[in-house]
Design a protein around this nucleic acid. Structure first.
Length: 694
DNA sequence: TTTAGGCACAGGGAAGTCATGGT
DNA sequence: ACCATGACTTCCCTGTGCCT
């Protein structure tokens, strides 16, 4: 081949099927090296056999890829559901290469408030290409957009911040806005059909949520940049439309630069390219006249499975969709409530992928396809990790990370009915083995005389002196071969939360806080790292955890709480009271009660409804505050209602997150007293008294 | 239009419980 | 003894975001 391409699709001109490849200098046609095909059961022209039952299969060829669909409806077919260009990438082992990138940000006329593509024109477009070339377009909108199309004619990846991943996206800004101002969305999209739209906002949000760090202050480009790069957007004292040309250019281009810097820091788009190369996939594809993301986990798994099958002479059935009961998942041990001193955390290295290798978890008859793939991924990753240690090169890092991502996806895929290798009992086998391993590790720790204070899926928290942890690790690893544990954090002090349930103390799973031997506080699962609690409650909880982990008294804490309660009504902390939650479109909520009546809905849904009534649509998140009347959405930064219900905040946010901490300590010490629940009715006099005294 | 399951917790709503006051 | 009322509790459900 020689020539590098970044996008490949089937092309039908002059009544001939070909493949069109797109490269840095334009596109070119390639003759199809084989005809479209699928398989049916039967004997004849093929050495291949059904992967699952080893029945022999027959290859059926077609002149036109769309004929497979017609044939399929009348026959039991195998591998008939693989798009033609994907089939070509697989069979020819083609990979995309050298993807030209452009970072884009637009500024629009904001003189009417929130920009509306039907009314407000685009004032400028800022672009930075991967070779460092900067372009800034400004002036007549029609000419500007035409120039934009010209400049991006051979671009494979357009990268924005909240610009969306397709021209139809309703919750995103730049890309659909340009498309609508351009005229016809479809035409615009078609013009850039080879170009994948990457939204750093969405990727960042997804990736950071996976490692559990909700960003205080929201996910705006400015806030993310300040947090990740140390510098944000240019401060402005006027609206966009009122800016002189030079100022607008500086503002616009600075946005593009920080966008590029964020991407380069995390290598988000390079990782995507790495994954596409590993799986012989395009970044995007056209299906039913719409551009879609190709790098979805199931598609990546599909490609690898089909490829490995082909190597082994195996053919797979078509994907099937079924609705089955879910399986039993991981084991979570109940934590021992309270503060513990000296706790070592151990994790099983890559537990699920290794189980799938060692236990030969694979749907094919010989149980080798999935283990083979995972072993290859593992071996290459080890090699790349070693190489990365020496070279510190970006490519090596990205590739080893890509192999890790892919390995971890396989368990989820085998448990998803939409996946070609779906097998409920195999998924169950993986989790059962996981439970067994964790159970044995727990027994081993206890047998060696160390109490296990917590464990989740593949991790164990054992009470042990740091100096002894290595020898315990040795014992464990000897026992669980070929699996392998590694030491994680060592906590000098760690707190597990819990509550009474009847007569018993029950530990709360998946939430704890501790101080590592390096003196850092780590919080997991607790409200202070959840973005749907207000900042003041989150901060207060952090303070409480800090005090408790450092052995401070509870009295001290109560003083802080009282002070906070007094200062809240002064309004200076209003901005810390905003609660933000992710939302769907209003219509997607069930707003009917069991008896069929109209339901009031949950607070965030009521806030969403109010926002929609004010004309805000397609929001990812809703921000709101509790008021004395109900709730109120926060739609403009920095403007808050007068009647915020401060007492409610104190009770249902601040107390709600601090009290469980105090309670857990008391439960451990045995000083907790169950409050007598008086069945007496609260008289008017009592509540009056309370009101007067406060 | 789809990688998995396990978990805590807020708040709404319906049904149940209890004290009160009237007949 | 019986009933209506209102305040409160209990349980189930929806929804979100977290953990591995």
């Amino acid at each position: 081949m020689g020539k590098s391409f970044f996008y490949c699709e089937q092309d039908y001109t002059d009544n001939k099927f070909r493949l069109r490849k797109f490269g840095r200098n334009g596109s070119w046609l390639e003759e199809i090296p084989f005809r479209p095909y699928c398989y049916i059961y039967g004997v004849g022209n093929s050495e291949f056999k059904d992967a699952i039952n080893h029945k022999s299969v027959k290859k059926i060829e077609f002149d036109n890829p769309s004929n497979i669909g017609l044939f399929k409806s009348d026959n039991l077919t195998l591998e008939s559901d693989i798009p033609y260009e994907r089939r070509a990438m697989l069979d020819m082992d083609w990979k995309i290469d050298d993807v030209p990138k452009v970072y884009v940000d637009i500024e629009t006329n904001d003189s009417h408030g929130a920009p509306d593509p039907n009314r407000d024109e685009i004032l400028s477009v800022g672009m930075i290409f991967d070779d460092g070339r900067e372009e800034w377009l400004h002036g007549d909108e029609k000419k500007m957009l035409q120039e934009f199309i010209n400049l991006t004619a051979n671009v494979g990846m357009m990268i924005t911040y909240n610009g969306g991943t397709d021209v139809w996206s309703t919750r995103s800004f730049d890309i659909p806005y340009i498309a609508r101002r351009y005229g016809k969305q479809f035409e615009f999209d078609n013009m850039l059909r080879h170009c994948a739209f990457m939204d750093i906002y969405q990727i960042y949000k997804y990736e950071t949520s996976r490692v559990g760090k909700a960003l205080a202050g929201g996910m705006s480009l400015d806030n993310v940049a300040v947090h990740e790069l140390g510098h944000g957007k240019i401060r402005r004292d006027k609206k966009i439309y009122a800016m002189p040309k030079n100022e607008l250019r500086d503002y616009n281009m600075n946005d593009v630069r920080i966008l590029k810097e964020i991407d380069e820091k995390f290598q988000f788009t390079d990782v995507k390219i790495g994954l596409a190369q590993l799986t012989n996939l395009n970044l995007c594809a056209w299906r039913r006249n719409k551009k879609v993301d190709e790098l979805k986990p199931l598609i990546m798994v599909d490609q690898l499975v089909l490829k490995e099958g082909k190597n082994l002479g195996l053919v797979w059935h078509d994907r099937q969709f079924s609705d089955e009961e879910s399986i039993t998942g991981a084991m979570v041990l109940e934590p021992i409530v309270g503060v513990h001193q000296g706790v070592q955390n151990f994790d099983v290295r890559q537990m699920y992928p290794n189980i799938m290798i060692n236990e030969k978890i694979s749907p094919d008859k010989d149980r080798i396809v999935v283990p083979n793939i995972l072993m290859k991924l593992k071996a290459i990753r080890e090699e790349l990790k070693e190489k990365y240690k020496k070279t510190k090169s970006k490519e090596d890092y990205i590739n080893q990370y890509g192999y890790k991502v892919l390995a971890n996806v396989f368990y989820g895929a085998i448990g998803n009915p939409a996946c070609r290798i779906y097998d409920r009992s195999l998924a169950q086998a993986v989790t059962s083995k996981g439970q067994e391993i964790l159970g044995r590790v727990r027994e081993m720790c206890e047998l060696a005389g160390f109490s296990v204070v917590y464990g989740d899926t593949d991790s164990i928290f054992a009470k042990i002196e740091k100096s002894k942890s290595e020898s315990l690790l040795g014992l464990i690893n000897n026992m669980i071969k070929p699996y392998e544990m590694e030491a994680g954090e060592y906590y000098t002090r760690i707190l597990f939360l819990g509550d009474m349930e009847g007569e018993k103390i029950i530990g709360a799973k998946k939430r704890y806080a501790g101080i590592t031997d390096e003196g850092e506080m780590k919080t997991v699962g607790v409200q202070s790292i959840r973005r749907d609690y207000c900042v003041i409650a989150r901060e207060m909880q952090l303070l409480a955890l800090n005090k408790v982990l450092n052995g401070k008294s509870e009295v001290d804490l109560q003083t802080c709480m009282n002070n906070l309660r007094k200062v809240l009504p002064s309004k200076i902390y209003d901005s810390y009271l905003v609660i933000t939650k992710g939302v769907k479109n209003l219509g997607e909520y069930k707003l009917k009660t069991k008896t069929g009546k109209e339901s009031k809905g949950q607070p965030h849904i009521r806030a969403l409804r109010m926002a929609v009534e004010k004309g805000f649509q397609n929001m990812f998140d809703i921000s709101f505050v509790y008021t004395k009347k109900d709730v109120e959405p926060i739609l403009v930064d920095g403007i808050f209602p007068d009647d915020i219900d401060y007492e409610k905040y104190y009770e249902s946010q601040v107390v709600a997150v601090v009290e469980p901490i105090i309670k857990s300590i008391q439960l451990q010490n045995g000083t907790y007293v169950i409050k007598e629940k008086s069945r007496k009715r609260k008289t008017i006099n009592q509540s009056l008294l309370e009101h007067l005294s406060s």
